[in-house]
Each structure stands twice: as C-alpha cells, then as structure tokens.
C-alpha cells in the first residue's frame, strides 16, 4: 500500500517536472533570438566605447571574425574585431574569457592598438558576488577603466597583477579573486594579440555566425 502511494507520488512529481521543463524550454525558445540580439547590442556598445570612432572607419561589427586561441581563455573560437583607418590597421578587439572568476567564467572585451597599448577593457558577462566582485562593471566602479593606456611588456611583466601580488591594479576590499582573474586574462590575451597582431589583421578567418546572419537579414532592417 505504502509502496503504491510512493509510486504514485513519484510519477506525479515526474509529471510536474516534465511540465515545468517543457514550459521553461518553450519560453527559452521564444526568447532566444531576442536575448542573442540584446547581447549583440551590448557587445557593440562596449566595442564602440573602447574603440573610439576616430580609430575606425570600417563597420566594426561586420569585421567580426572567429579566432581560436588558448590565450583568449576559451576552447571555443572567440570573436575578434579588426579596426582600420584608411585601410591601415588601427585597433584589434577580442572577446576573451577569464575562466577563473570567483563564480565561474567572466566574459570580457579587450581592445589594443597595433603597438600593443591597451585601449580599454569592458566586462560583458559575469556572475561575481554583488557588492564585491561586481565592481568590474562600469556602472559599479571605475576599476575596469584602469586598463586603458597600459602596456604588457613581456610574459614576465609582474606589474600586471593586483597590488596584493605586487602589481599595479587595485584589488577590491573583500574580493581579490575577481580582479586577479580579470588582470590575468587581459594580460594573457593582450600579449597574444600583440605578438600576432600583424597576422591577425590580415589573416582570413571564419566570419562570426551572428554577423553572417546579420548580413542575411540586413535588407529587412534597412
């Protein structure tokens, strides 16, 4: 008897779980495109912030290419944006990942000049602790602006660390792991982009999917 009611309860729970999953999946399917578009717009806003208009006369978003490199912090190909002025390379921007944040990966956007100077860094997505680690957002703190104008001299450049580790970047009170992860990721990516910048400006790389889609639907927007 007890066995039977347990069976019935189990089935009932499973039924609820199935309905709930189905509902969430349905809403996710309905909102997926819109969410993707929002992310795209946000990336574009950040991109325009750190790569100033005078630094490019090409359409940055259309310049998006996929680049696969461990130095960018992800095993997935990451978007790379190439800026030109009068066909001359003027800036290189990439979406990178700091895999060792306090609560998982932090997605960042970093841009450098051809001479290796960092133009700026922005946080695209993170799950860091509110009030502590979230100072990597521009609307919470000015911290992320401190990357602008910095140069990574070499792999051994130990100024690229938080102050607690003897470097030149502030840590946050109560949150050292987050800025440490960001500084490391930016250093690694900047070094890579700088070393390979000549190749990266010219090399034929696969076009970003979102951009390709965008091209296809462009007529609708115009």
């Amino acid at each position: 008897m007890a066995n039977k009611s347990m069976q019935k309860n189990g089935l009932l729970l499973a039924l609820f779980a199935i309905i709930a999953t189905f509902l969430v999946l349905a809403v996710e399917a309905l909102t997926a495109d819109r969410i993707k578009q929002q992310l795209r717009e946000q990336t574009l806003r950040s991109l325009n912030e750190i790569v100033a208009p005078e630094l490019h006369d090409n359409d940055l978003y259309q310049s998006c290419r996929l680049l696969q490199a461990d130095a960018l912090g992800s095993s997935q190909p990451q978007p790379l944006y190439r800026a030109f002025v009068n066909q001359q390379p003027s800036a290189l921007a990439a979406e990178i990942v700091a895999p060792n944040g306090y609560s998982g990966a932090i997605r960042l956007l970093v841009a450098i000049k051809p001479d290796g100077e960092v133009l700026g860094v922005r946080t695209l997505e993170h799950k860091e602790t509110p009030g502590l680690g979230d100072k990597i957002e521009t609307n919470k703190s000015d911290w992320i602006y401190s990357f602008a104008g910095k140069v990574v001299r070499s792999e051994e450049d130990d100024r690229w660390a938080v102050q607690r580790d003897g470097g030149m970047f502030d840590q946050f009170t109560g949150a050292t792991i987050t800025p440490r992860a960001v500084v490391q990721a930016v250093k690694r990516a900047t070094l890579y982009l700088n070393e390979h910048s000549e190749r990266l400006f010219t090399q034929a790389l696969p076009q970003c999917q979102a951009t390709a889609e965008n091209n296809a639907t462009e007529a609708n927007y115009e």
Partner: peptide
Amino acid sequence: MVIATFVTIIQLLMNAY
C-alpha cells in the same frame, strides 16, 4: 518546482525585453 519555473520564465523574459 512551480516557483522555480515561474522565476526562470520571468528571468528569460527580463533578459529578452
């Protein structure tokens, strides 16, 4: 389960709109 479903739905909708 019911509450979590509604919260997830709201979260997706807010993310989108």
